[in-house]
Amino acid sequence: MLTERQLLILETIVQDYADAGHPVGSKVLESQLPVHVSSATIRNEMATLEKMGFLLKEHSSSGRIPSLKGYRYYVDNLVKPSAIDPQLVDNVRKALDNQFFKIDQLVASSAKILSQMTNYTAITFKPATKQVRLQGFKIMPMGNQQVMVMLITSDGEVESQLFNLPRQISGEELEAMVRIINDQIVGLPLDEVVDKLRESVPVLVHYIRQPSGFLSIFGGILNKAVDDQFYVGGKLNLLDFVEDGNIEQIKALYSLIDRSADITNLVATQDHQQTIHVKLGNEMADRSLLNYSLISATYDVAQHGQGLIAILGPTNMPYSKIIALLEVFRDELAHKMLDYYDFYD
């Protein structure tokens, strides 16, 4: 259990190191602590915190910096969001004050805005699509037995793919197949569509020689619509915090930001009951992120599901400021999305 004085010292060192980027000494702390404590007493407390694993010394005569254990304690017990600045709220609203014709445009723009406001890397996920339904199905003849299959979902997304039909299929048969799908499939939640199509195969087999091939393509389009879609802003900002001369880390980070599966896994353990979540470098599977932290926040868009926004930056980032920004941003983003759905629904 840390004493009140030790808590003050740890909190001040974390905040000073975020602001200045170099070790913090006892003389600096003496002038900053809200209670009068001698420099010698502060040095003793710093030594105790170092023995407990909360602080580190870069070399024998330097001040202290927080350890990952120190950051974890600070994040779990001490950090408080900065006071909400009305100007910050106004800036976020103005940044989001554009007309968006697709949710994806809004989510992509949010990643770019967040990265510009922080100079870190931003990741934004669109709301989960479990309640999204298949709203429309069309087949457009393209000539030479080629058709374009189009799916329209209830959140305004349109997915399409070209498909080659057997030459034996006539226009009447194609129309009959479209009617069957519209009668039995349209209106269902996306995660039920393929199962329902499989039930309809005995009927569809009269119109398609290889219904399993059609199901495969139909399923592929649906997977594209259902998959978590995310956007990354400020990818190269990650490289600003690479250890000097660490070529291997640079290579690993370049590889990370180009692999969608790794980005998804990075935020996969987000607890959606905990609206703000901080993950430190040693808690992330990718070792190239050892001196980075991920701060993520969920945002709720009513019946349209939950999305997520996240900031990936150096471990010594100003947590209070970033958490305050994410709290403001998620609220404004959710309002913007609700306005979008209200307008297009």
Rank of each mutant, 00 (worst) to 15 (best):
L2H: 03
R5S: 08
Q15Y: 01
Y17D: 02
P23L: 09
V24C: 11
L33R: 07
V35D: 03
V35Y: 13
H36Q: 15
A40Y: 12
E50G: 06
G53Q: 08
G53L: 05
F54N: 01
E58H: 10
G63S: 02
G63A: 06
I65D: 04
S67D: 01
Y71T: 00
R72N: 08
D76I: 00
N77L: 00
L96K: 06
D97P: 05
Q99W: 09
K102T: 14
K102W: 07
I103D: 10
I103P: 05
Q105W: 10
A111P: 02
T121Q: 08
P127L: 02
T129P: 08
L134I: 00
Q135S: 07
K138S: 12
M140D: 12
P141Q: 12
M142R: 11
V147S: 10
M150K: 12
L151A: 01
T153I: 00
S160W: 07
N164K: 13
R167L: 12
G171Q: 13
I181K: 00
I181G: 02
D183Y: 00
D183S: 07
I185N: 03
G187D: 01
G187Q: 09
L188S: 10
E192S: 10
S200A: 15
I208F: 15
P211S: 08
S212D: 15
G213H: 09
F214E: 00
L215V: 12
L222F: 07
L222P: 01
N223S: 13
V226F: 11
L236F: 12
N237E: 05
G245W: 02
Q249P: 09
Q249G: 04
A252L: 07
L253K: 04
V267H: 10
A268F: 06
T269R: 12
T269Y: 11
K279Q: 15
L280G: 07
E283M: 11
M284D: 05
D286W: 10
S288E: 07
Y292G: 02
L294I: 14
L294P: 04
S296D: 15
G305S: 03
Q306N: 11
L308K: 06
P314I: 11
L326W: 00
V328K: 01
F329M: 10
E332C: 06
L333E: 08
Y340S: 05
Y341L: 05
Y344F: 10
D345K: 09
